[in-house]
Nucleic acid binder design. Sequence first.
DNA 1: AATGAATGAGCCTTCATTCAT
DNA 2: GATGAATGAAGGCTCATTCAT
Lengths: 219, 219, 219, 219
Amino acid sequence: MAEEMEQWLASLLRLGEAEKMTDKQIKIIQAAVEIFAEKGYAATSTSEIAEKAGVAEGTIFRHYKTKKDLLLSIVAPMMSKLVGPFLMKDFQKVLDAEYDHFEDFLRAVLNNRLEFAVKHAPVLKILLHEIPFHPELQAQFKAQLFPLVADRLVRIISHFQAKGELVQMPPSALLRLVVTTCAGYILMRTFLFREVAWNDEEEIERTIQFVMHGLEPPV
Amino acid sequence: MAEEMEQWLASLLRLGEAEKMTDKQIKIIQAAVEIFAEKGYAATSTSEIAEKAGVAEGTIFRHYKTKKDLLLSIVAPMMSKLVGPFLMKDFQKVLDAEYDHFEDFLRAVLNNRLEFAVKHAPVLKILLHEIPFHPELQAQFKAQLFPLVADRLVRIISHFQAKGELVQMPPSALLRLVVTTCAGYILMRTFLFREVAWNDEEEIERTIQFVMHGLEPPV
Amino acid sequence: MAEEMEQWLASLLRLGEAEKMTDKQIKIIQAAVEIFAEKGYAATSTSEIAEKAGVAEGTIFRHYKTKKDLLLSIVAPMMSKLVGPFLMKDFQKVLDAEYDHFEDFLRAVLNNRLEFAVKHAPVLKILLHEIPFHPELQAQFKAQLFPLVADRLVRIISHFQAKGELVQMPPSALLRLVVTTCAGYILMRTFLFREVAWNDEEEIERTIQFVMHGLEPPV
Amino acid sequence: MAEEMEQWLASLLRLGEAEKMTDKQIKIIQAAVEIFAEKGYAATSTSEIAEKAGVAEGTIFRHYKTKKDLLLSIVAPMMSKLVGPFLMKDFQKVLDAEYDHFEDFLRAVLNNRLEFAVKHAPVLKILLHEIPFHPELQAQFKAQLFPLVADRLVRIISHFQAKGELVQMPPSALLRLVVTTCAGYILMRTFLFREVAWNDEEEIERTIQFVMHGLEPPV
DNA sequence: AATGAATGAGCCTTCATTCAT
DNA sequence: GATGAATGAAGGCTCATTCAT
């Protein structure tokens, strides 16, 4: 079963999944992502996708049995990649070696995930909007990904608590504060106020200082 | 124009808007809120709403010219009420008098808005999901509500900065950190993990301490 | 359960079922019968039916949830009416009283069912063609109607056997010979060679004499 | 023209028509027969046939220009073979020599055609169902096969009438009674109640006695 | 000969909306 | 004000058929 899990992770994280995709299939996906992100899944018609992809409507259904299939083929892999870094094998060990301080860890994660969000903004937007309406997606997230991720992060936080870098408080509570603050910046910057000219370096540094001071153990 | 604005605010904030609503109209709104929240606006059919409301299909269109009208009549007022407290006349003066410390202000706002979110969770969920897909809503928010609210909050933050309670940093940056942290808790608690048994008092206190330490001016 | 059965029969045999049917609904049925009979159910499109009925396509689906529903609403009642006379309450007693000889019975049935077939030829044609492809119809026939009918006919045949009017042979075998001969004429006359100018009286008489001689007990 | 006719008959009756058929072609025909018989021609998709036959969708159309072509290639030859015995050269002479009595003829025909029906039940079922919906098939039957067959049978019946074995009545009327009775048994046994364990020998004998007595000339 | 991706017309069905009652 | 039958445009999807490989 550990074997199985490793394979599952590997397959989930595979980034260049353009294997075996025909030219038209790629165009379909691109068009779908674009329109789903713009109008939402339910408000998008397959004929619209076909037109934008420059493909006959029937072609969509040769590659994806249903419209929902098309959505899932876009969104399900993204979900895994979103939390990918936290699923790496020996995640914690890598961390222990690499990051002397929680601050370094935070900086690495924030930069990495911000870059990811910027690069995949449209798919991410689709994912965020559709998760509440598609039980399969919710299930995949709540039953499989979330527990794994939460577990690993809690261990890391506990580690730095033990080192005396973070205030004493239930790790899950710490986790919430850290995640909200980091995700808050990424979402604001990527979706809510995309048009603002953000100085990412500065904002990230500010965010890190805010978190570090906020969670500093009392002297 | 200032007159006009006051009236607009007043009308927006009117909570008990059940005036003039017939019995059936109320049932329609209730049904619509329920189903919109569950499946999303675009995936909800008017016939479904009619059925759940126990009215004829035509009745909906007697009260709301279009399906979108129905959505707006639900969501637009909510948007104003969501930021209602920040729109109150003489908001800052009230604050100056009432809250000696930023911490008190934070506590008051967090409690108040959490209560509001819990009470209006379904409509809030609809609002959050539909804003990106309906330009009218975005316009109302970005052009009218947001500037007002941001302006008032920035003033308050500047006030406490001047008092030496908050670290020196552009007020808008401070605002972002505060808002994400507060909104983060409310959203997590109300939508993402509603089933968890949250100890609101404790979590709010934790959140406040986090913010206050995070934004403490250096000694 | 006997109660239930009686009600079921009653409802099945109700001929004038135009109750509550709107004008358009009747036109839909008429058009559907006509085209189903001409091209078969599967080869008929709902748009074709709508056009012939002078109705919008959507109207069909307001009255019949699916195309198949439309078929069943035409064909299922017909099935009961087809064997209606054999399902009458106290069928055998009526017979005993009314028909002194098997020949009289045969004559009555042949005339009655021929008239019926001529009158309902199109629906009958649909029924005959669709039964093999729709399990619901088969079930209704094989599980409910057929046993009842066969049972009653077997009793009648046994009755006339006992009276010495029919040759000794398993009643079911007798039944088969009688039914194929009678149905054979009706089907030939109504479907296979409709264009021929049949002299019904003469042919029926011939058929009856054929059956009576063919089943005469040996002297 | 007589020449032509003979060749036509010969070609129609050719039984082992597997000549020149590739392996895949045979599989296509087998699959088509199976599914056409199960769901009807119009309700069967070519992709379904391709799948069951284990060939690519395109392969079907390499051998049969259209779906209808495929149907005709199955059903048209069967039609001739169905009435094959009655089309044999010198049919009547053969009869005169071979069968002393009408009863013998009946017995031979019944056995032979029953065996044929059992062997080719699926194709026969397709033929029976599709004839009314395909003018070409109807034409072939009504214009070419039926007149020939009817003519030959009428001659035979007249022959036995002249011999005093059959009652005096228009030969076409006699034909109808005989055909209905015989076909009735075969169809019932082969399609309507296939699952019953029929004792063919007994039933055929019963059927023959029924016909012979039914058509016995008066003493 | 065989494949299977691609097509686009057409299918059944749903939908928001109208209107006579 | 309320109804619900009627609409017809549009939706997702299937189909027979073609064609480059």
